[in-house]
Design a protein around this nucleic acid. Structure first.
Lengths: 340, 340
DNA sequence: GGGGTTCAGGAAACCGCTTTCCTGAGGCTA
DNA sequence: TAGCCTCAGGAAAGCGGTTTCCTGAACCCC
């Protein structure tokens, strides 16, 4: 690998001059030397060693992102927003998939710290797990103490700025739509109960139930993996336990898609016999049959805002929270309960 | 940010000793000192500066990946395979989204070179663009010359190892299924014609047509964006131009999903009036209605193999090519042509 | 008890770049 | 012509680690 010294030697100048020309310092250099250096760069196909640059300059330029899994459409959308803002600021993004493994999440914080990232964005590590939260808090504190910026998406007890999707409100909207439509026996297929996303959405649903004089008994809630297959399994379990449901709420769209497949298998018409409503409004929601009613969260925008918060440290100590509203999207998968 | 020197000072040892303890050198150190150093590390929340380490050690550890867009399910799957293998080897992966912009792709090669990655995996930059290919070739050559490893997914005229999905064969399978089923007027919605993926799949389709004494005239091929919306538009155009089609081949599943939505909008029954077949077998294919017949490519495995090739340099100069077979997956979206 | 090993720990060079500080040449004014 | 500025370019000191090489103490044997 050609080094700056090689370039300087070839151009017959000092490394200092070469460096100034290559990385565009403000210092003046004659056109003559400039041309010689640039030619040498070209001939040697020289590319500066980014690590050496980072070490020499004080400034940290990359930013880190910890998500569950970029392949998951929910996080893919968020990541898109994150990337877009980062790129606009000329920042390289390092993406880490935690696969919802707390230990791995902690490791990644270390790794990002080691990489000297300017900021860390945590998308979705809102766990109900005191020990983990404490450990994470500690690691992040060590990071922020040395000037690192942190922003999170979702509810946490973590320091730093936050983007807060209206999960509770969204749950309420879904519930109000169903209970308001006369449904009495509403089942829920939920993600892991350790996630604040799950519990918040569920809380909203319960609030809606109360408001309409209903309840969501525990036996009508099935917890499973927050993905398609989890949704399929949970739906099967739910139908077995409560065959008389008239509506199902899936706490995310992936689960809803799984639910749809189980319902189809069992020959249960949607929405005629069972109404189904999802959450997130991922792109697929429009393309399944029947098209999925859901609660939309502007995922890409959430990512963009989280990155913006992380990059501009206007916060000045006080941590900022940006609420993100949820809106109900009505499609073909729901209908009012049949009056009887 | 605490440095190694800080740790050493606090533990009352030399930086050399501290380094040896922290990064687990083979050199023996007394338990007494080890304990003191580890305590200091803990108290200072010390994390070694990865860039300094990289500079000091010779070994490059990260690997780079250039894809079109990780949010795109096709690349998301491939990336999953890539990541899995990389993580198993303890490698950090830097993912770059080129958004099919050749200039950006070239830039990213430079960037990855600057980051001193051990290998670069190019997923899907097979363009019919001589100037670009030449430039890319040059940059990659400069990289491999200094010991960098390159592997590509898809057809290129690039140096290095390659994973070759059977695009032509897959196109043939789709075509054979349709023409063999008696379809005569088959339309194609295709991705950008500069992509080798597009032209290869199309070539296979044409071979199948020939074999069954048919053709795929240019007027029944519409090129558009390789995504859902492109598929929707292309389908509309295709139907307007050739209302008498009995089958449509989408050159990837995203386009097929878009096609489905246009067909649904226009009240055209699938497969009764028009059969539809996709390509890739992305997860959604099972979940649309009717379930999509498609040509399966083992995307995650392709990613895994590309990463394996990149990481083990057993090649010894000669570049290896690993073919990946395509298989037809029959689902509800196709049926034989109505005999008349 | 002297000489040779063995071995834990430290000094210092080095990785590749940036940047401060210094030097010396040229141009200006008096 | 002397003295002072200005300014292009170079020397060298880091940035934060790793690792080679060296030192000195403890141990061994005869």
């Amino acid at each position: 690998m050609a080094t700056l010294a090689d370039v300087a030697r070839r151009a017959g100048v000092s490394p200092a001059t070469a460096s100034r020309i290559i990385s565009g310092s403000t210092k003046l250099v004659t056109d003559e030397l400039r041309a010689r250096v640039l030619r040498a760069v070209d001939e040697l196909q020289y590319v500066p060693n980014a690590h050496a640059q980072l070490l020499a300059r004080a400034q940290r330029t990359a930013v880190g992102v910890i998500v569950h899994d970029v392949s998951d459409p929910y996080f893919a959308e968020i990541t898109r927003g994150l990337q877009q803002v980062a790129t606009a600021h000329g920042r390289l993004v390092i993406i880490c998939n935690s696969y919802r493994n707390p230990a791995r999440e902690l490791e990644y914080v270390e790794l990002l710290r080691a990489q000297q990232v300017a900021a860390i964005v945590l998308a979705g590590s809102g766990y109900h797990d005191a020990a983990f939260t404490k450990a994470l808090k500690g690691k992040l504190a060590a990071y922020t103490r040395t000037g690192g910026r942190v922003s999170v998406i979702g509810r946490h007890e973590l320091p730093g700025d936050a983007v807060m999707p209206a999960n509770e409100e969204g749950g309420y909207l879904a519930g109000a739509e169903l209970f308001g439509g006369g449904h009495r026996k509403v089942g829920v297929i939920a993600g892991p109960r350790v996630l604040t996303t799950t519990t918040d959405r569920l809380a909203g649903l319960r609030r809606a139930a109360r408001e309409f004089g209903r309840t969501v008994p525990a036996r009508r809630i099935v917890y499973a993996g927050f993905d398609r297959d989890g949704g399929a399994e949970a739906t099967a379990a739910l139908l077995d336990a409560s065959p008389d449901l008239t509506a199902i709420v899936a706490l995310n769209d992936s689960m809803a898609v799984g639910a749809l497949s189980t319902l189809r298998e069992r020959g249960i018409a949607v929405p005629e016999r069972i109404s189904l409503i999802g959450f997130d409004d991922m792109p697929i929601a429009r393309d399944v049959t029947p098209a999925l009613s859901t609660v939309r969260l502007p995922l890409a925008e959430m990512g963009a805002r989280a990155m913006s918060l992380a990059l501009d440290n206007g916060g000045g100590g006080a941590s900022r929270t940006e609420p993100v509203p949820a809106v109900l999207v009505r499609r073909a998968s729901i209908q009012p309960a049949l009056s009887r």
